[in-house]
Design a binder for these strands. Structure first.
Lengths: 199, 199, 199, 199
DNA sequence: ATATAAGCGAGACGGTACGTCCTGTCTTTTG
DNA sequence: CAAAAGACAGGACGTACCGTCTCGCTTATAT
């Protein structure tokens, strides 16, 4: 199906849309989720408030979109996980990177903001799963399937469960600040997972 | 938060304190976390706003206290986990109960509210860990240690990690609504965990 | 405002013009002057907002035109005042009719709206005087001149002043609601005027 | 029974009330009635918007109060009209002063604003009549009664009607800008009135 | 037993932000 | 190719709460 120009007949201003998302990103990073006001976004974006309310149902939706849009390009490029042939090595590489990302104070506020929206709005959660989580998981599962083929992972393993065991503890530790996010922790999660799902 | 050791120290009105916590619980259940206003709590509790501000630093702290107080009794009573001698059976019992609790629509809003506070306020997160999570974890670890002694669990297993692998996937699925909370899911988490940490 | 002498000059849509004026009249009657919005007029008239802005400089001008247009026909027809030969009788007839008109709740809102525009916009006031007040006054003065010729009114009387004494008290009483608008009041104004200007 | 402290003691801030009225007066004079915004009044007065909405039902009421308050002192002092014994001389003095006042461009905007409110809000009109118009009329009627006693005015004259004939034409000329406000016009109104109501 | 001071209910205050409405301009689409 | 449809930046509306600040009143020591 040809991509083409957008045949949809909305008269929506792309310029304003971009300005709003950009201003939102900037403000969330600067003052944190709770203190971002629609009025401030509008002012910063040089946009009338109505233009925001016309296209988004809530502040949460704007913030969500702002960061969703940000990640939409990345996902296409970093399409595949490393595959050295050794699943343990590769997972540790990936998990350590994830740990580092979470630990980066720069991303702290935006990620918490995004998470907040997801946790409190079922609609946004659904969007998140479909547009962000699922594609990212697909990439990871691809690598896991490769490991299954290589006999490094149980053939019958439920890959969603594998991912949950791998990532959920890390996520929870970050969310509740219940412990330090270290490379060691990343490694031990990989170890546990591989032990649980070895052939 | 909940008052100090010496109750004679202050002239704080216990009646007002209870009314505030009770009103807060009711309001969170009725309208959800985001829409609870201090003014509404005060009105519902028949209390001046200042009485709230005098004793709690933020709305989050009130909500947090409201539910912390609720759980404070429970923890003492249900002190120990079942111990039939079979760790798999016992964990499945406990996990299924947890799943049921999360799935209960009645507790949906309060637990999300509480989680919200924890995720966004490091101070409350610390309190949560110390007053709620740690005691509950201690009880579970006790049962795990019993399993270690019985040779059903690796002797050297990091029990915090065991609990993380057991509970975090469930928590994340609930938080992000990424799947149904079923007894089957509970069971598979127990299976995975025991496989990862068998002697 | 109402269109120029040469109708071929512009490509203005007469259909739209009529629809706008009609919608304006309806809305003023329904919700009163203060609450009539250009957007509502446009919607009701099935017209783009721009079509209103293209031809009128302000909301006041539209409202003014709407009622000016309404009176434009009437003035030509009811060209002359009754002339029974007795100025007192005739003036009382006319004044009682005026009182009745003002007292009609149906015309309350439109007349107040029109007056509002006149009182607050010098340009509209000038138009009003020229297009509405002057012609109407001319008709009345004609009758007064007839009375002068009949020796019922001082020959040198300033007819503008006569009309002012006759009508201004009535107008003010209506505008400020400072008293009831009755036939008796109409009569006493005629009596006073004739006393002041008898030959 | 001792009077004591004021029992209907509201907690209303007199300071804020004054600041609001003062700011309103200033703004009406500066930008005219139509462009005064509640938000601007609040900002100028250093007051929260709610403090205005708490005590006044509408913008009109604030503006009305602002100018009512202004006139409240004056009325007590300038209690009596001049009484030289010659009603014609005294009325001309007073009417010329009134004409001068209306002609003063300084008072143009406030008086028009006040009139606007009265013309469009029956409640404010009632207040106006009672608090401003009636007391002022009472003073004038006192002088007219003195003239009746001196045989310069018909004993049975309806004094309200006398005042209407005297003032209404002037008021209407000012409101609709239908002619210049001159001393000559003032004089001729006095002449007409005295002719109509001579003994 | 009495003053005295803290805590209390109440609620006004200066503010910030909300979400809606309308203005007057500009752009796109349609008949 | 004119006009409807309607998006846009801007800004005021009136409401809801924030967190602070008196008010009088009650109550519970600490003289």
């Amino acid at each position: 199906m040809s991509q083409g120009r957008n045949p949809d007949r909305t008269r929506r201003s792309e310029r304003s849309r971009q300005a709003i998302l950009e201003a939102t990103r900037a403000l969330v990073s600067e003052v944190g989720y709770g203190k971002v006001a629609i009025e401030t976004i509008a002012a910063r974006a040089g946009v009338g408030k109505q233009t925001i309310y016309r296209w988004w149902p809530s502040k949460g939706a704007v913030i969500f979109d702002a960061f969703l849009a940000l990640s939409e390009g990345a996902e296409g490029q970093g399409a595949a996980l490393p595959d050295t042939g050794d699943i343990e090595v590769d997972l540790k590489t990936v998990m350590r990177a994830t740990v580092a990302e979470f630990a980066d104070p720069e991303f702290e506020k935006p990620i918490r903001a995004l998470n907040n929206e997801i946790a409190n709005d079922p609609d946004l959660a659904a969007q998140y799963r479909e547009k962000l989580a699922r594609p990212l998981d697909a990439v990871k599962k691809e690598r896991l399937r490769s490991a299954q083929r290589a006999g490094q992972l149980a053939a019958g393993a439920d890959l969603d469960l594998v991912l949950a065991v791998l990532y959920a503890p890390l996520f929870q530790r970050w969310l509740h600040r219940s412990g330090p996010l270290t490379a060691e922790y990343a490694d031990s999660l990989v170890d546990v997972t591989l032990r649980a799902f070895r052939p």
